[in-house]
């Protein structure tokens, strides 16, 4: 799915299992928290969780604004 989107629009893949995303062929990859809650952490309070989520989304937007020539995992 990510690859078909990339044919026409810049896309960032926020996902937990990075090796699968790399194999599938996503170009901009942001590693997420965990499989059942990629953009959250139920062990934290709702406020803390939102901070974590915001950080990941900011990273995703940064990835979209970064010129790349090859598959790139945005770890920080």
């Amino acid at each position: 799915m990510v690859k078909e989107i990339e044919r026409k629009l810049p896309v960032v893949h926020v996902c937990t299992i990075v090796p699968i995303s790399q194999t599938v062929g996503a170009n901009r990859i942001v590693p997420a928290i965990a499989i059942p809650h990629p953009l959250g952490d139920p062990t934290k309070t709702e406020e803390e969780e939102k901070v974590i989520r915001r950080r990941l989304v900011e990273k995703a937007l940064r990835a979209l604004q970064t010129e790349i020539t090859e598959q790139t995992v945005f770890t920080d």
Partner: peptide, 26 residues
């Protein structure tokens, strides 16, 4: 199937004037 979904979805997004996509996976 995933290929077809992606192709259809991006067609709609382009038509709607979307600039970029965040795709999340579990």
């Amino acid at each position: 199937s995933a290929r077809r979904f992606g192709a259809e979805i991006v067609g709609k997004l382009v038509a709607d004037g979307v600039t970029a996509v965040i795709l999340t996976s579990t």
